[in-house]
Simulated assay, not measured.
Amino acid sequence: MRLDSHQHFWKYNPEKHSWITDDMKVIQENFLPDDLNPILKEHQIDGCVAVQADESIRETAFLCDLAQEHEQIKAVVGWADLGSDELDKDLDQFASQKKLKGYREILQAKPVDYMLRKEFIRGIEKLGKRGYTYDILIFHNQLEAALQFVKKAPEQAFVIDHIAKPNIKLGIWREWKKEMAPLAERDYIFCKLSGIITEADWKNWTTKDLQVYLDVALELFGPKRLMFGSDWPVCKIAGEYEQVLEIIERFTDRLSKTEKEGIMGNTAAEFYGVTV
């Protein structure tokens, strides 16, 4: 299966999507399944994983509704306040949603120690007991805290979004590699090859700028724990879907057929429990 492990849908609202600043005007509009489906078909991609972009229960319901209506959405990563005393009730609300496979919070916008709170860890444990995955969305400067976090939940299935957002624009990678390594040593942690061009210079990035980061991800996680993700439509800030796909297609050409197929979809399908 060829599966895009990471993309978003939204009906643009300036207040709800305040993170989409004026230098991101290209994505200040609606992006829905009918916009993405022709792109998936053109590139023979069988489906996608819709990931939350807004922190609200309403967002989770919105994505689940889209997934019911559109066959190409194979899985949903929703949102819930993991530290809330109402978490069980919120999770129960979506228990019948078969395509809802995991959850995510926008940890990159939170204090570094936010994920280490006992309430948050308690929430992660509740996700694990229900069989949900968890996407870790952080910046590179949160990697040390993320290591402490995952140590507290060794039974949880984790995937690091966007290779933990290293500073590609400035070409800084050695410290990022050093801090990613102990996370990669844990076989319950996966990593998405996504969101890379938007961490580079939006107007002037080259494939060469990205190469060392892809090489490090492959070295640390191996081909069996990496997943292709477009981060569409956010990727449009720096390039088109086709460019993101081509980067990963070319990068994986060095691998065996099985390894390439894993990165291009099979690993994500297994991680999120997607079936054809």
Rank of each mutant, 00 (worst) to 15 (best):
V26E: 10
I27P: 07
D35M: 00
L36H: 02
N37F: 03
I39H: 00
L40G: 04
E42A: 09
H43Y: 07
D46I: 01
D46T: 05
D46A: 01
A50K: 04
V51I: 05
D54F: 04
E55V: 01
E55H: 06
E55P: 03
S56T: 03
I57E: 01
R58Y: 05
R58W: 03
T60N: 03
A61Y: 07
D65S: 07
D65Y: 03
A67T: 14
A67V: 14
Q68W: 05
E69Y: 02
H70G: 08
E71Q: 11
Q72F: 13
Q72W: 07
I73A: 12
K74D: 09
A75G: 09
V76W: 01
V76I: 14
G78K: 06
W79N: 08
W79R: 06
G83S: 08
E86V: 15
L87A: 10
D88Y: 02
A95Y: 02
S96M: 10
S96R: 08
Q97K: 08
Q97M: 08
K98E: 12
K98G: 08
K99P: 11
K101R: 11
Y103Q: 06
R104A: 04
I106S: 06
L107C: 09
K110F: 00
Y114R: 11
R117P: 04
E119M: 05
E119V: 07
F120V: 13
R122Q: 12
G123V: 09
G123S: 08
I124M: 09
K126S: 08
R130P: 10
G131E: 10
G131T: 12
Y132E: 08
Y134W: 10
I136K: 14
I138R: 06
N141D: 15
N141H: 14
Q142W: 02
E144Q: 15
E144T: 15
A146V: 15
A146L: 06
L147H: 15
L147R: 14
F149S: 13
V150A: 07
K152H: 13
F158V: 15
V159C: 11
I160S: 14
I160N: 15
I160G: 15
D161F: 00
H162E: 13
H162T: 09
I163T: 15
